[in-house]
Simulated assay, not measured.
Amino acid sequence: MTRTTPSPERARLAAALRDLRARTGLSMVGLAERTAFSKSSWERYLNGKSVPPRDAVRELCRLASEPEGRCLALWEIAESQWSGRAAPALRTDTPAQAPSAAPGPIPPEASAPAARDDTHAGRRGAAVAVLASVCAVVVGGVAMTLFLVLGQDAPRLSPSASPSATGPRCRGAACEGRNPMDMKCGIGPQTLASHRTASGAMLELRHSETCGTSWARMWDTRIGDRLEVTADGRPRSAEVEDEADAEAYVYTPMTTTGSGTVVRACFRRASDGKEECFESRVR
């Protein structure tokens, strides 16, 4: 359900991107001709069916002569929700509230006239509960947006500092083999290198200075495609397992890296098993 119906985070991003496209006056074909992304990809991005790559957002901002800050902040939020799969508790808390409000509007099957007051009270209680939930979501969204927009320029935490509620959940060796989105190392990372494969898949090597780790990610992939990242002989790999993966980012687990470490990524196509590799050095 969450894959077919855009989440609020994806819906906000898609609406902002549609507004930018309207300002450019370009059709989907025109966008495909002026960017590195296909017509079908842009249709998915603008309809909120999948989260676009960061570079797609930047290219659309450039075409619309729009500063990148706001859209990239919306993109960070949408990507964390979409590909993070990182906070299942956040996604399950909201639906769990629905049953508590549902009994209010349902009238008793055979109640006395006095029961009408209880029904109206239940409706008022349900309305209050819904309003409170909406307010909480709005406040949370605004807080996260401010963090992403304003917090990117804040001083980095020292390695000795303990992870905060909004910062990374691990550092260094403690991150080895962990998911970068789960550990919040995927917020504001450095892109070491990018590569487009012969099959059209996009690959990136990423590095978090705060976490002291690197990883790779892929998108525009096919089921069975595989990506492996290696640094100092420690391989970490990920595979596209289903259609949902093929339409989203797929991340390898993290490996510990530092300044000067050479990070290598190898992509193996499911169609013929051929492998393409590229590498970069942590700066």
Score class of each variant (00 low, 15 high):
107 P>I: 04
107 P>E: 08
107 P>L: 00
107 P>S: 08
107 P>F: 07
107 P>C: 08
107 P>W: 02
108 P>C: 07
108 P>G: 04
109 E>L: 08
109 E>Q: 12
109 E>T: 05
110 A>G: 06
110 A>C: 01
110 A>F: 13
111 S>H: 07
111 S>L: 03
112 A>L: 12
113 P>M: 05
113 P>G: 02
113 P>Q: 02
113 P>W: 09
114 A>W: 14
114 A>H: 15
114 A>S: 12
114 A>E: 08
115 A>G: 07
115 A>C: 02
116 R>Q: 08
117 D>Q: 02
117 D>V: 13
117 D>I: 09
118 D>N: 12
119 T>M: 09
119 T>N: 09
119 T>I: 09
119 T>G: 03
119 T>C: 00
119 T>L: 06
120 H>I: 08
120 H>K: 02
121 A>D: 05
121 A>R: 08
122 G>F: 03
122 G>R: 02
124 R>E: 06
124 R>C: 04
124 R>Y: 05
125 G>F: 03
125 G>D: 03
125 G>Y: 03
125 G>S: 13
125 G>E: 06
126 A>V: 02
126 A>P: 01
126 A>R: 00
126 A>I: 00
126 A>S: 09
127 A>G: 08
130 V>H: 04
130 V>Y: 06
130 V>M: 05
131 L>Q: 11
131 L>C: 06
131 L>A: 08
131 L>N: 06
132 A>Y: 12
133 S>F: 15
133 S>E: 15
134 V>H: 13
134 V>N: 05
134 V>P: 01
135 C>G: 01
136 A>E: 06
136 A>R: 15
136 A>W: 03
136 A>K: 10
136 A>I: 01
136 A>C: 05
137 V>N: 05
137 V>E: 05
138 V>R: 01
139 V>I: 06
139 V>W: 07
139 V>A: 14
139 V>K: 05
140 G>Q: 01
141 G>H: 14
141 G>T: 14
142 V>K: 09
142 V>W: 12
142 V>A: 13
143 A>N: 00
143 A>C: 13
143 A>E: 12
143 A>T: 10
143 A>D: 13
143 A>I: 02
143 A>M: 14
143 A>L: 10
144 M>Q: 13
144 M>Y: 12
144 M>W: 04
146 L>H: 14
147 F>T: 12
147 F>Q: 15
147 F>R: 09
147 F>D: 15
147 F>V: 01
148 L>P: 04
148 L>Q: 11
150 L>Y: 03
150 L>Q: 14
150 L>S: 07
151 G>C: 02
151 G>Y: 03
151 G>V: 09
152 Q>F: 14
153 D>N: 06
153 D>C: 01
153 D>F: 11
153 D>Y: 13
154 A>Q: 14
154 A>E: 12
155 P>H: 05
155 P>W: 03
155 P>Q: 00
155 P>M: 08
155 P>G: 02
156 R>T: 07
156 R>C: 00
156 R>D: 14
157 L>Q: 07
157 L>K: 03
